[in-house]
Simulated assay, not measured.
Amino acid sequence: MTAANKKLISAEHVFVDSTHVKASANKRKFEKKIVRKETRAYQGRLQEEINQDRENHGKKPFPPDKFDKEETKEIKESTTDSESGYYVKDERTKQFAYSFHAAADRNGFVLGTIVTPGNTHDSQILEPLVEQVIEKVGKPEAVAADAAYKTPAITSYLFNKEIIPALPYTRPRTKEGFFRKQDYVYDEHFDCYLCPSGETLKYSTTNKEGYREYKSPKQICTTCSFLSRCTESKDCQKVVTRHIWKKQIICVIIKM
Rank of each mutant, 00 (worst) to 15 (best):
A3M: 14
A3T: 08
A3K: 15
A4N: 05
K7N: 15
I9N: 01
I9Q: 02
E12S: 03
F15W: 02
D17W: 09
S18Q: 08
V21T: 13
A23L: 08
S24I: 14
S24P: 13
E31K: 15
K33E: 00
V35E: 08
V35R: 00
E38S: 00
T39I: 13
T39G: 07
Y42M: 06
Q43D: 10
Q43I: 11
Q43R: 12
R45C: 10
D53K: 15
E55T: 01
K59Y: 15
P61V: 07
F62Q: 12
P64G: 10
K66T: 15
F67P: 04
F67W: 04
F67G: 05
D68M: 14
K76F: 15
K76I: 12
K76E: 15
S78F: 10
T79A: 12
T79I: 14
T80D: 13
D81K: 06
S82T: 10
S82L: 12
S84E: 04
Y87L: 10
D90G: 08
R92P: 05
Q95I: 09
S99L: 12
S99Y: 03
S99W: 02
S99E: 09
A102M: 11
A103M: 05
A104I: 06
L111C: 02
G112M: 02
V115C: 10
P117S: 12
P117M: 11
N119W: 07
T120P: 08
S123P: 06
I125C: 04
E127Q: 13
Q132A: 07
V133T: 01
P140M: 02
E141K: 00
V143A: 03
A145R: 03
D146V: 14
A148F: 07
T151R: 05
T151A: 06
P152K: 05
I154H: 00
T155V: 04
N160H: 09
K161H: 04
E162L: 06
P168V: 12
R171I: 05
R171M: 10
R173N: 11
T174K: 14
R180L: 08
Q182S: 13
Q182I: 15
D183S: 06
Y186D: 04
D187P: 06
E188Q: 11
F190M: 14
C192L: 10
C195R: 05
C195T: 05
S197T: 12
S197L: 13
G198Y: 11
K202S: 13
Y203V: 08
T205G: 11
N207E: 14
N207L: 07
E209V: 02
R212W: 10
K215V: 15
S216G: 10
S216W: 09
P217A: 05
T222H: 14
C224D: 08
C224N: 06
S233F: 01
C236D: 11
V239S: 04
V239A: 08
V240P: 08
R242K: 11
Q248M: 00
Q248I: 00
I249P: 02
C251N: 05
K255M: 09
M256Q: 13
